[in-house]
Nucleic acid binder design. Structure first.
Lengths: 232, 232
DNA sequence: ACTTCTGTTCAACGGATGTTGAGGATCCAG
DNA sequence: CTGGATCCTCAACATCCGTTGAACAGAAGT
């Protein structure tokens, strides 16, 4: 019997070149195809063909199509993989002492929001990483498991730790705001590219969106007149 | 032969109660299912069953599954349907004379961006309209035709007219910025709901996002966000 | 009454899909 | 040499898919 196990026990006792290379080949093919055509648009046979392998081997290694998908999603959605510089960014967010008016100082060219933005976008710019991210992103709109996993990781492992460090009122709200800003940006730049957003330089994008991200994290929410919600 | 015509010639000469009610019933069932399960996740048989009709009748009226989908998409993506108050909003955008510093006047509780936001969100809040919007939104990430149509309508009929009226530099860029803001907001509130964004009152959302939308439309890009210093 | 047209159903087709069971190849232990 | 274990292929399975052709009911025109 092969190991179709989702759990994290990786014995890694057998020689790494024996069999596991084909399994990895299948996974990579699956990432590519899931990213392009979504869950239902990708067939087990297509994955096998792209990996140069018999369809039955996919079942042998993963047990089911659903399990291939699960594996790909979970692999991608590990926070360390998704945003390796997260701990450093968290510290930067917490280090910002001018909580109420971060821009009045005039000395910060890019606040923590800008740096968070740049971190994510850098991952997306990498042609090797983008397919994996696209899998999660696209299928979060199609596949229930992907949707839930997306919520769990995005919320629990990224936004919540971020929110806890924000030295400003309503941290969860601020985290959600930045998240939605990022989702919109990524969608318009990589998923359904619209110009001129898709063609701009990374630095230009960060320069444009950064101030909004910074303000969402540390600024005074609600703009000029506080509509109904007393911030603090 | 039935009329599987996509083109806009609507003779509407035959009695409206003859046969056309079943056709409409099928379309409504399709909207609901496409919204929930996407294009590939929805089968002709499922549409037929939900409409209480034989699968062959779907083919008779629409010719193909692809055509059912096209019809649904095009029906939803008509600008008048999508945002009926667009002309009024365009005038409001153009009427803002304080191009450089819209917030300094202190008399506008919500700028044109806020009103644009409110217009879209109001459509999304309507439980009867939301499925249609979800169809377009979800399948723009899955189906090539939906993606292209989304780009055409969103870009050509909404953003471009909007951009032309903006009394500020880089109008296309500003339109794209607002679009991405809206996409992120809608995604986090309706498509993959995340808290506290999904549970907030409409007014609260407009109060939070409005200033950013206003600044994207009329503010000084790349500089300080709305509550910051006046850009002089 | 006879035909014609439209709306509708029924039963079926060919093809694609996820999955499986039997078995081949290779290697290592007894 | 035997026997199990691991990796892998082949051929097939049952099911579901979109689509089609034949046929039927009813209204309308002749």
């Amino acid at each position: 019997m092969a190991r179709h196990d989702v759990p994290g026990d990786r014995p890694a006792e057998q020689p790494p070149d024996a069999g596991q290379d084909r399994r990895e080949l299948i996974r990579l093919a699956a990432v590519e195809l899931f990213a392009r055509h979504g869950y239902r648009g990708t067939t087990v046979r297509a994955i096998a063909e792209r990996a140069g392998v018999d369809p039955a081997l996919v079942m042998y290694h993963y047990g089911s199509k659903e399990n291939v998908f699960s594996t790909v999603i979970r692999e991608t959605m590990r926070a360390e993989e998704l945003l390796p510089e997260l701990p450093r960014l968290l510290d930067e967010v917490a280090d910002t002492d001018s909580a109420d008016d971060p821009a009045a100082d005039g000395t910060c060219p890019g606040g923590p929001g800008s740096r968070l933005l740049r971190g994510f976008l850098t991952r997306w710019e990498d042609a090797a990483t983008r397919p994996s991210l696209l899998v999660v992103f696209r299928s979060a709109m199609e596949h229930p498991e992907a949707s839930q996993l997306f919520r769990e990781v995005a919320g629990g492992e990224l936004l919540l730790p971020l929110a806890r460090r924000i030295p400003a009122p309503d941290p969860e709200l601020r985290a959600a705001l930045v998240a939605s800003l990022l989702v919109g940006l990524v969608t318009g730049r990589y998923v359904v590219p619209i110009e001129p957003l898709a063609g701009m330089e990374l630095d230009t994008v960060v320069g444009l969106y950064g101030p909004y991200a910074d303000d969402m994290l540390l600024g005074r929410l609600g703009g000029s007149p506080p509509p109904g919600r007393p911030g603090g």
